[in-house]
Amino acid sequence: MCRWTPSVAHLSSLCLACFTLLLVTAGTATGVCPPGVGHEPLQVLASGINCSWTLERHTRSYNHLEGDVRLRRLYSANKFFLCIDKTGKVDGTRRKNYADSLMEIRSVSVGVVAIKSVSTGLYLAMSKKGTLFGSVKYNPSCKFKERIEENGYNTYASLRWKHGGRQMFVSLNGRGKPRRGHKARRRHPSTHFLPMLPS
């Protein structure tokens, strides 16, 4: 009695057909391929791109950041810890374990954070003129764009306010005093902070 045994070539073409069907089905459900990548299965395989799910997964991958809370001390490149006292005054201190320098950094959306002093309960905020202050209530002036710079330090730019189209940054000068946001630039050491774990 004769028994049919599929060849390797036959199995390969069968797998390719299944893969094509999967791509077509998923593609119509979730989106289209990115520019420059065709719908031919071999072209998709060669490009190494999962075209149907690229955009959806890219967006989804950031969801875990929203609501993320970190307890940190923001240590400036000028060797000061950012602090907010109970009167709402923003300043810098060299005291490592100063209570007012412990901050709760909460991600409110992708790349945007709210910074709150744990001891005083006040939020770091920036006025339209670029002045830093502690706000009792969380509002749009308390949102900052957090960015990791090439040197490994973070910068914090006001999400709400700009000056002449330029971003305004959280900044401490060489004496530990807050610098007006419009006078600070991304490359200035005064705008660079290391979020340090509390000891």
Score class of each variant (00 low, 15 high):
1 M>W: 01
4 W>F: 15
6 P>Q: 08
9 A>S: 13
13 S>F: 07
14 L>T: 10
16 L>P: 02
18 C>L: 14
23 L>E: 13
23 L>Q: 14
25 T>A: 09
25 T>W: 01
27 G>Q: 06
28 T>W: 08
32 V>G: 12
32 V>P: 00
33 C>R: 08
34 P>G: 15
34 P>R: 07
39 H>P: 10
40 E>K: 04
40 E>L: 08
43 Q>L: 10
46 A>H: 05
49 I>C: 07
51 C>R: 10
59 T>P: 00
59 T>Q: 06
60 R>M: 06
60 R>T: 09
63 N>V: 07
64 H>E: 01
68 D>P: 00
69 V>C: 02
71 L>W: 00
71 L>I: 02
72 R>V: 15
73 R>N: 04
74 L>E: 14
75 Y>S: 05
76 S>E: 00
80 F>M: 02
85 D>H: 04
85 D>F: 07
88 G>W: 01
89 K>C: 12
91 D>Y: 15
92 G>Y: 04
94 R>D: 06
97 N>W: 02
97 N>K: 13
97 N>C: 15
99 A>W: 00
99 A>S: 10
101 S>Q: 03
102 L>D: 02
103 M>W: 02
104 E>L: 05
109 S>G: 11
114 A>Q: 14
115 I>E: 03
117 S>H: 06
118 V>Q: 01
119 S>R: 09
121 G>W: 10
121 G>N: 07
121 G>F: 06
133 F>H: 14
135 S>W: 04
135 S>R: 01
135 S>K: 02
138 Y>P: 10
142 C>D: 08
142 C>K: 08
146 E>V: 08
146 E>G: 07
147 R>W: 02
149 E>W: 01
152 G>A: 04
154 N>C: 15
155 T>F: 05
157 A>G: 09
157 A>M: 03
162 K>S: 15
164 G>Y: 03
176 G>Y: 10
177 K>W: 06
180 R>V: 13
182 H>A: 08
182 H>V: 12
183 K>L: 15
186 R>A: 15
188 H>R: 00
190 S>V: 08
190 S>F: 05
194 L>D: 14
194 L>Q: 11
194 L>K: 08
195 P>N: 05
196 M>G: 00
197 L>I: 11
197 L>A: 09
